[in-house]
Simulated scan of single mutants.
Amino acid sequence: MYLFLGLLDALGLGVNCCTGMSCLMRKKVLDEAGGISAFGIYLAEDYFFAKYIQDRGWGIRISSQPAWQNAGISRVKSFLSRLTRWCKLRIAMVPHTILLEPFSECMVLGLVASWAGTVLLRADYLTFFLFHTLTWSLADWIMLNIVQNGPPPFSKFEFVISWCFREVSALFIFLHAIWNPVITWRTGSYKLRWWGVAEPVNTRVTVM
């Protein structure tokens, strides 16, 4: 996704594809906005850093060198919680994500594409869907090997199980993010307003 968004930005379409944990920004430009503290009302401040920089005529480029990080040990619950939090942030920051994001996921897009295939091409629905899913998973495996600069540190079987879990849970994550706009981050809880503004709430809410 970020490679595609980076390509669109490089073509001059002004797409924001910034990820704060692996991004270098010009301090001088941020200082003109009042420094980092000026973005304190946002949880996803890295997105708004990049938006401000782009609005001033600067561009964003993705490096060919992956930014390595130690992700540590992640349990299923924390993994789902992280993806849900990111989904909530995307919906709040870019509201039209509500309509577009489901169709960027393998399973939802596969169901729609398979229906179109049966109508337009008279293809078998199940065959079309399985071919779509297999092609998507192979593309993800190839991309993973490229980013890792070699085979990843787990087996193909582990990849298939993890990949299937991620793709099947995507719609649940999206619906859960819409249903509950509250985010628990570190020691605080925040309710997201439109355009990404985070409002602290007094009652601590546990988000899966």
Score class of each variant (00 low, 15 high):
Gly40Tyr: 08
Phe49Cys: 03
Ser37Cys: 11
Val29Trp: 00
Ala44Thr: 11
Phe49Tyr: 14
Leu11Glu: 15
Gly35Arg: 09
Leu7Asp: 13
Gly14Ile: 02
Ala38Gly: 14
Gly57Thr: 02
Ala44Met: 11
Gln54Gly: 06
Leu7Gly: 05
Arg56Trp: 00
Gly6His: 01
Gln54Met: 15
Asn16Glu: 06
Gly57Lys: 04
Thr19Trp: 09
Leu43Val: 08
Glu32Cys: 08
Phe49Arg: 01
Asp55Tyr: 05
Gly20Lys: 07
Met25Asp: 01
Ala33Lys: 15
Tyr52Gln: 12
Thr19Glu: 14
Asp55Glu: 14
Phe39His: 12
Lys51Asp: 15
Cys17Trp: 00
Ala50Gly: 10
Arg56Val: 02
Gly57Cys: 03
Gly6Trp: 01
Glu32Leu: 14
Cys23His: 02
Asp9Phe: 00
Ala50Leu: 07
Ala50Val: 04
Phe48Leu: 09
Leu43Lys: 05
Phe4Gln: 07
Met25Ala: 05
Trp58Met: 13
Leu3Gln: 11
Lys27Trp: 14
Val29Cys: 01
Gly59Ala: 08
Leu24Glu: 10
Ile41Met: 12
Asp46Met: 05
Glu45Lys: 14
Gly35Asp: 04
Ala33Asn: 11
Leu11Ile: 03
Leu11Gln: 15
Glu32His: 09
Met25Thr: 09
Phe48Asn: 05
Asn16Gln: 09
Arg56Ile: 03
Gly12Arg: 03
Lys28Met: 06
Glu45Trp: 07
Ala38His: 10
Glu32Pro: 02
Leu7Ile: 06
Tyr52Met: 06
Lys28Leu: 09
Gly57Pro: 02
Cys23Trp: 00
Ala33Ser: 13
Cys17Glu: 02
Leu5Glu: 11
Thr19Ile: 13
Gly59Ser: 13
Lys28Phe: 09
Ile41Cys: 12
Ala33Gln: 08
Glu32Phe: 10
Phe4Cys: 08
Leu3Ala: 08
Cys23Gly: 03
Ala44Ser: 15
Ala10Asn: 03
Val29Tyr: 04
Leu13Met: 13
Glu45Leu: 07
Ala44Phe: 12
Lys27Ala: 11
Leu24Ser: 12
Tyr52Glu: 14
Gly12Met: 02
Ile41Lys: 15
Gln54Lys: 06
Met25Lys: 03
Thr19Lys: 14
Ala33Tyr: 12
Arg26Tyr: 07
Trp58Glu: 15
Lys28Asp: 15
Thr19Cys: 12
Ser22Ala: 04
Gly59Ile: 02
Tyr42Met: 04
Trp58Phe: 14
Leu5Tyr: 10
Tyr52Ser: 06
Cys18Leu: 09
Ala44Glu: 10
Leu13Ala: 10
